[in-house]
């Protein structure tokens, strides 16, 4: 027992959230991690200095999120007096660009300054750039404008030029979840082990699709898609489901009076002539959504098999924790 306890250290991953003041950083964070709904974010004040939040993810991953206030004074401070403190041992930098900004050139110069600090202190970090508030752009202009901006920013990304990833986002639709799902996936230490287990489970229960997602944020950890389901025309379904479930959590919270952070359904099922679908708890921090062919028998068997598989997934968390050798800070 003592070995387990002494090695309960979690894998900490430092994530910087940066960008100009008003770009939408805190809005995003509050929606993804603190169960705000999009229209609540108008209540947020400007972020002063850095707001830290620690988010436990998948049992063994601890996200250490630094929401860095974007006003010029703070920026100066990060880049000079606190350079090593802020930019040291960073796993991921998320830089938010406001599409509405009138000073795009200046924003990119700011970004370039941050990139060089990162290059110096955490050369192995990964950068995600979010081009945000895309809802303000007419639908048909979104893609070209996004690409144009992304190319321009890429050119200013120094040694991260080839690795930086870009996402168009808005708090008003599921693009927010699409971006954050990619970020989380990048950070999860044992994604492939989880996927292997999930694949086995999917075969046992003959699932068309399994989606593993984190309970609080509803962000997808990973999924397994089998057979014909690979042709499902709704290619954005994973972020759509995150968004659907997140909205539904709000609704349940409102109805039951349970805070949105903990409100959840214990189980959900949908049965139709075309598919059967259910969501159930898998581990302490994750839920499993399963889509299977329409058969009452198959449905019952699948639920039992998932119950039996819970132990294995729980052990997976512990196993990672118990091997101090593979832990980094």
């Amino acid at each position: 027992m003592s070995t387990l306890n002494s090695s309960k250290r979690q894998k900490q991953r430092k994530v910087l959230l940066m960008g100009k003041s008003g770009a939408g950083k805190s809005s995003m964070r509050s929606i993804v991690f603190s169960n705000y709904v999009a229209k609540d974010v108008r209540r947020l004040g400007a972020t002063i200095d850095v707001e830290h939040s620690n988010i436990k993810f998948m049992g063994n991953l601890m996200l250490n999120l630094w929401d860095c206030g974007g006003q010029d004074g703070f920026m100066e401070n990060y880049l000079h007096h606190q350079r090593e403190h802020v930019f040291g041992s960073v796993a991921v930098l998320i830089f938010v660009f406001d599409i509405e900004s009138r000073e795009f050139q200046a924003d990119v110069i700011n970004y370039a300054n941050i990139v060089s600090a990162l290059e110096e202190c955490s050369p192995g970090a990964k950068i995600f750039c979010l081009i945000h508030k895309m809802d303000l752009v007419q639908t048909k202009l979104r893609q070209p404008l996004f690409e144009e901006r992304a190319e321009y920013i890429r050119a200013a990304s120094e040694s991260f030029r080839d690795s930086v990833d870009f996402f168009p986002t808005s708090i008003w639709d599921q693009t927010l979840y699409k971006a954050w799902t990619q970020i989380i996936y990048f950070l999860i230490p044992n994604a492939s082990t989880i996927e292997t287990l999930l694949q086995q489970l999917a075969e046992v229960i003959d699932a068309r699709e399994l989606i593993l997602y984190e309970r609080t944020t509803c962000l997808m950890v990973t999924h397994v898609t089998r057979g014909i389901e690979a042709q499902n025309p709704f290619t954005d379904r994973f972020e759509r489901i995150s968004s659907i479930l997140k909205t539904h959590k709000q609704s349940i919270a409102k109805h039951t009076g349970i805070p949105a952070g903990s409100a959840n359904f214990a189980e959900m099922q949908i049965k139709t002539g075309r598919f059967m679908f259910f969501i159930t708890r898998l581990t302490e921090n994750t839920n499993l959504a399963a889509s299977i062919p329409p058969s009452e028998q198959g449905f019952n068997a699948a639920r039992i098999n998932i119950l039996l598989a819970r132990q294995k997934f729980a052990e997976l968390d512990i196993a990672t924790k118990a091997r101090p050798g593979i832990q980094e800070v």
Partner: peptide
């Protein structure tokens, strides 16, 4: 599923949610 006609599943969709706690 062209000819399966959904005979193995429900003809009319049905759903149930069990809320936690409370």
């Amino acid at each position: 599923e062209e000819d399966s006609g959904g005979e193995s599943g429900n003809q009319d969709a049905e759903s149930l949610i069990r809320l936690e706690k409370k």
